[in-house]
Write a protein that binds this DNA or RNA. Structure first.
Lengths: 354, 354
DNA sequence: TTGAAAGCGCTAACAT
DNA sequence: ATGTTAGCGCTTTCAA
């Protein structure tokens, strides 16, 4: 039996590392490692009989090629990196998910790096991740424009999300937050609200900047509407803690930075016995999965987040394959999602405080 | 000037790959690559002056060691892998986050693999991820016990979450879901409920099995209480779609598989005009961040999920460093978190519909 | 069709 | 203290 023959000829001593490598298979099959490599890679120039022998040996030894050796030889890792400011944020989770899913379909894996909102760490994290991978997705980086421009060249292939750069060959996927808030504000005004308040996001967030720009444009278009600015953040607690400021403002329509903030705010208003939307209308942003299940269901601007992650991979794949890309990046228009948290304005409120 | 000297001597032609490697730095600094390697690794046996020269050359060329070459030479990647059944699940997101954070603190990165609840893919994904990494965290795998036992040996160093194995040296972090549901059921019974229903999770989920076992124990302890079983799943929609079944059951206390299902159910009940907890009490499981912000706030069993991810890394680090580990794995007791979604039972309901 | 040998970029043992 | 050399595990020319 062939089996006996090859087994006898080598009691298969494992290599220095103790792992089964291509060398062990080669010995067992009685061929050179070059041939084993050919077989493992489906090179058809190998004699079928020998190929079968190699495959048998590989199977018996449970051999699996070492990806690190492969990566070094091929100059690619079949892995892409993603840097996010905060993995706790549902938006970035969704992007990661969409990216991971799409990349997996093409045989790529995803390495994650969370900067925990420490913008000074982003550049280092990005560089490290990039070196281990074939490409990098930089997600809503908090760093300055100057710093971004500086590191971008060393990160190629690079796909940006919610930031742009002057560098060529860097696709950028951005959500039109400016248009989104304008749509939401317009919706509230249509309902009769004349005194709005924007519960802002993190100061360093570019997407917050876009919202602010959008609101400036809105104010210019609607001089009769008041739009107040309230300090905020990006999470539940921010919204919850903003209840006093919101009530003090006398606004009847509140544009929360995102759905999380809106949910926290609604929860706080509920505790105070303030009716939403009876007394105050609240809107969010993003349309995270939870948004439709809040009480009342949240009016928001839906961002196709998972699709964004998937698009990031499409762009990345094009870069890696050096394909022509006529549409390097794209702009996503949020879709107004009107639910129960927004309603007709009551008589204008005056500034009173619990 | 030293600077001029070294610059002149090599117009630094890049290596075959076009990237700056250790060789380029060596040439520019006028030393061997071994010396460059020593300097880059902080080996103090290098003459300070030469070290400075090397550092200058490295800085000027913006040299960064190639991690792949390093990994091959050192036999380690400073990366760990994690396999999750569904990246959309907040529980796994939180574990990932805790793991990533803890690992990052020790200089390790995380590679993710999402099996999208396709249990037949798990083994392959796990193997592939493991080969690229120094260790693997296998998170709530859906595969059978037999399959798990079979692949476990090839995955070491391995940390299991919510599954156990007979193999040695495989720490296992499990949440005591059985005790958790018993606590929740006990809480409802204390409130006067005598007819409960369990909205089950995915059939293949081991944690669902633990809940079922817990409920069996509960039934044995409380023969006067009825505990019905309803088919379910693990997401919002499952809960939302279960409204009819829940109403038909006549149960006044509903134990949802997890918080997501509970939220979906509450949303559905709200739409039907059923008051929670006035008419029906609802409990969740996990205490995801959103749970305290639902209306009414959700009674649930809190699982320290992020801590679980962190612990997974502690265990992994111990394995990688081959430290003695007297407590290989641990068991987490959920903490009853009583909020507003559970309340006193009304008069027992009878099965009515629409 | 197959094997020998070079090379991917790095570290480390060995020699000087 | 530094350079030379071997090797990590693989792919891929180049010869035969």
């Amino acid at each position: 039996m062939a089996r006996g023959t090859y087994e006898r000829q080598a009691m298969v001593r494992r290599s220095a590392t103790g792992r089964i490598g291509i060398a062990e298979v080669a010995v067992k099959a009685g061929v050179s490692h070059a041939t084993v490599s050919r077989v493992m890679n489906g090179n058809f120039t190998v004699d079928p009989e020998i190929a079968a022998r190699v495959r048998a040996a590989a199977a018996e030894l449970k051999y699996q090629p070492n990806p690190v050796g492969r990566s070094l030889a091929l100059g690619k890792t079949d892995t892409i990196g993603i840097v996010v400011p905060d993995l706790a944020n549902p938006t970035f989770q969704a992007i990661l998910r969409g990216l991971s899913r799409a990349a997996a379909q093409d045989g790529y894996r995803v390495l994650i790096a969370d900067s925990f909102e420490v913008s000074s760490e982003e550049a280092i994290l990005a560089g490290e991740a990039r070196r281990r991978c074939d490409g990098l997705v930089l997600c809503a980086p908090r760093m300055s424009d100057a710093e971004l421009e500086e590191i971008v060249p060393s990160l190629h292939p690079l796909v940006l999300i919610n930031r742009t750069t002057t560098a060529a060959d860097v696709p950028s996927l951005v959500v039109d937050y400016g248009q989104g808030v304008q749509d939401l504000a317009g919706h509230l005004v249509d309902l009769g609200h004349t005194r709005l308040a924007f519960l802002a996001g993190p100061p360093r967030s570019a997407s917050n900047g876009l919202r602010l720009q959008g609101l400036e444009a809105f104010k210019a278009d609607h001089p009769q509407v008041e739009v107040l600015m309230l300090e905020g953040g990006s999470d539940f607690d921010t919204g919850h803690e903003a209840v006093d400021a919101v009530l003090d403002s006398g606004a009847t329509g509140i544009l929360a930075f995102n759905d999380l903030v809106a949910m926290g705010l609604m929860s706080g208003l509920h505790e105070r016995g303030v009716d939403v939307p009876g007394d105050i209308s609240v809107t969010g942003f993003d349309d995270i999965p939870f948004a439709r299940y809040t009480t009342p269901a949240l009016t928001t601007a839906a961002v196709p987040i998972t699709e964004l992650g998937q698009q990031a991979w499409e762009q990345m794949r094009a870069l890696i394959r050096k394909e022509e890309n006529d549409a390097p990046g794209s702009r996503y228009q949020p879709r107004l999602e009107i639910r129960a948290s927004s309603g007709p304005a009551k008589a204008p409120r005056t500034a009173t405080h619990g």
